[in-house]
Design a protein around this nucleic acid. Structure first.
Lengths: 187, 187, 187, 187
DNA sequence: GATGAATGAGATTTCATTCAT
DNA sequence: TATGAATGAAATCTCATTCAT
């Protein structure tokens, strides 16, 4: 039941937003009562926190799996990361939207548990870029921290528009983005 | 007074979010009463709509000024656009955050008036890229529509982290991004 | 309206208890809506606080009027005080019951504003007894602080049983108590 | 287990109040579940009733033991009664507070089983005073019923302030009160 | 004896909005 | 133009109680 509530909430939060979705909405859509909700969660925010934690932990985990693959060089790792993030939209798109959009609804204490993971994710990209520079795969003059934010912009923004059933597949989109990031658009 | 209400609301909406800011909060912070608010606005959403419209119209306008400058080539225009968007954060950062974050609070009718401008902005970038391809400034094989979304990702995402008083200036950041978009990071 | 809400609440709190009386009960009995209540009070506790403050301030004031009457000696002042407290039940009985019974529902911050007055009231009695001892009106060996608590017991307890329209008047009851306190029951 | 639930409830009811203590609080503090509670008690009020009944029966019993002691005269019996009531706070203070404070939470049916005992207790004091008057131990003109209520005031009120580990022992306090009641404070 | 999931009624509180003045 | 009293709908959360296991 807890699982069911979480899944349904993800669907509703993504569609209507966290603040605009009431506990009543959630339980009505499951055919249970508010009491049931509060049997499993002590507040509305706790549920939001659960969704956040699960999402970001998954993401960091997937990222670190890519980073620790010794057979890939830095370029390939960057490509895999972009690909993973875009591909993720299929399965985790809803959670991702909630993650980016509703984080402000967490109180400082809850936020404090999320932000380190988010920062870790960004720092991992930054680190990869620095490593690529050292190994001569990336240009020497790059500002790794800003570039990392640029890469994150490209991928995170796709959660706003990418539709898994649209005209382009996740693979096609991530190939285009990887090419842009690595080689640029100028001829 | 209408101007003052709008300005103050932008500040509050950005800090606390639209749903979390009450009309009471707004009027209290101005030392007036709710009656005053409803004399100038017919609803809470109308105010949000005003903010959206003003922001996106400004943006499209600034964009078209760049596009119609005959002395720049496509690369330069793209660079100017990125620069304009990042630079905008100084003066319009609050409105921008509200624009991206609170659009979901508009009802379909209101949304219908915003989306065409937003699409126009995106299509203008797409068009610029197509033009650059035709003129040989950009690579021939590019998918203009996806690339446009990539560029938008890089710039729009910066509203999440860019601080005008941080260690990098708007000019420095946009130079880095323009270089990344045009030339890529691979050596 | 604020006055009406307060008066009606005193009636209901006394009859059913603070926790058992809902805001709904209060506004229903006045034919208004909950919104109206929250226009005048920011919480349920604020109303309880209002009742407490008004009651205890009134009481201390009445007490100090008695104490500062130079024409009475200590015995007379003690008698007047007992009489005032019992007599008070006619007009303030409801508030008094609420004061003694519902104080635990105030949070520490609110309590902090009440307790000094309550202590002041007790200390004033204690002081009067000490003065009476010094002046030879009361026995020399008395423990003024315990005696003060005894006097308070006799009077405050009467709020539990005294009925203004019962077989004994307030004057008769207070005369009996004053006689008991001053002269005892032993022959 | 029933015993454990009762004891723990007494502790919680005294600290937080009956209405403010949930069944959940009770069972949590015992490490059991609500089902367990409802196996032993059919409702929340039944538990409160149990506490009331046990307390008042004990009290009347102790009182009647004093009354039936043929070796004491009325003055001594009155003194013993005051002493018993104050001394009781050590062991029964919690139950006493609950008895006086939470009686209003009993429904009429339950109340009907408590009030006769409470009245019996008061009538026993009244009776003792009448007897004392008849035997010439107490003043002839006394109003026995009001005096009984005065004595009850002195003793019952002490539940509000007496601390077994404070600067005065139960014996000292009751000696002072007995002296006040029998001989008065006037010199 | 005991568990724990579920209920349903009700509590406090918030807030956009209206309207007579 | 502006006020401020009032509304009413909805939100989050609590909790005594039930019941199948």
């Amino acid at each position: 039941m807890k699982e069911k509530i979480t899944e349904q909430s993800i669907r509703l939060f993504e569609k209507k937003g966290f603040t605009e979705t009431s506990i009543q909405d959630i339980v009505d859509s499951l055919g249970v009562t508010k009491g049931t909700y509060y049997y499993y969660f002590s507040s509305k925010e706790e549920l939001l926190m659960d969704i956040h934690i699960k999402y970001i932990k998954n993401l960091v985990e997937a990222q670190e799996k890519i980073l620790h693959n010794d057979r890939s060089n830095c370029k390939e790792k960057l490509a895999e990361m972009v690909s993973m993030l875009i591909g993720n939209i299929d399965t985790q798109g809803r959670s991702a939207k909630i993650f980016f959009r509703e984080m402000k609804n967490l109180n400082p204490e809850h936020l404090g548990k999320i932000i380190p993971f988010r920062d870790q994710f960004r720092m991992n990209i930054e680190q990869l870029i620095k490593e690529g520079i050292d190994k001569g795969e990336f240009k020497a003059h790059l500002d790794a921290s800003i570039i990392a934010l640029g890469v994150l912009g490209v991928t995170n923004w796709s959660y706003q528009w990418f539709k898994p059933d649209g005209s382009k597949s996740a693979k096609e989109v991530s190939d285009i983005f990887v090419d842009m990031i690595l080689n640029g658009v100028a001829s």
